[in-house]
């Protein structure tokens, strides 16, 4: 499969348009970066990936001012397709019903960034302890440590320094 073939498969199905960039590493492996303007068209891309017998490798999210950027990383027989979208209301359309391989990736975005994958079949937490509020990665420094005002490193090192013998 070439990136051009993939582009042809989604070209007429995303009315609000998208941007396609191609990058190549020094070893000659190509990757596609697709940025869609409307988040719901992630479903179109996911269906195309499925048609090409591809899989969702993982998904990344990060915070940008008041919105979240979500990037899905797909693989079709050795070619990586990155799909980038933005959400302002902390929800995305879950692609897990289309691509089972996206299951954990979307659940992790939910607990790490408090971005809800609407339509995801599972509600359980994945890794994050229930003692911690979801969305931990939205904060630069986690809230609980900040409230203490002093880091564990400071506490331990103050004890170490008492033992220094000169």
């Amino acid at each position: 499969m070439s990136i051009e073939e993939f582009n042809n498969a989604i070209k007429n199905k995303i009315p609000s348009g998208y941007e396609l960039k191609e990058d190549q590493d020094s070893y000659g492996n190509s990757q596609a970066w697709i940025t869609i303007r409307e988040k719901k068209y992630a479903l179109v891309v996911a269906n195309a990936i499925k048609a090409f017998k591809g899989r969702c490798v993982v998904a990344t999210a990060y915070k940008e001012q008041n919105s979240h950027v979500v990037i899905y990383h797909f693989d079709i027989d050795g070619v990586i397709i990155n799909l980038q979208l933005k959400t302002n209301d902390s929800t995305i359309y879950s692609i897990t019903p289309i691509l089972k391989s996206a299951d954990w990736a979307e659940r992790e975005i939910r607990e790490m960034y408090s971005v809800e994958p609407v339509g995801h079949p599972s509600n359980d937490r994945l890794f994050l302890d229930y003692g911690l509020a979801k969305g931990v990665l939205n904060e630069y420094i986690s809230l609980s440590k900040m409230q203490m005002g002093v880091s564990d490193t400071d506490i331990l090192w103050s004890k170490v320094k008492k033992e220094v013998k000169l």
């Binding site: 302890d129 931990v136 986690s142 809230l143 880091s151 564990d152 490193t153 331990l156």
Partner: peptide
Amino acid sequence: ISCGIFRDSYSI
């Protein structure tokens, strides 16, 4: 002994 490299993470 000291949480080492993982010290000061929200999850530790």
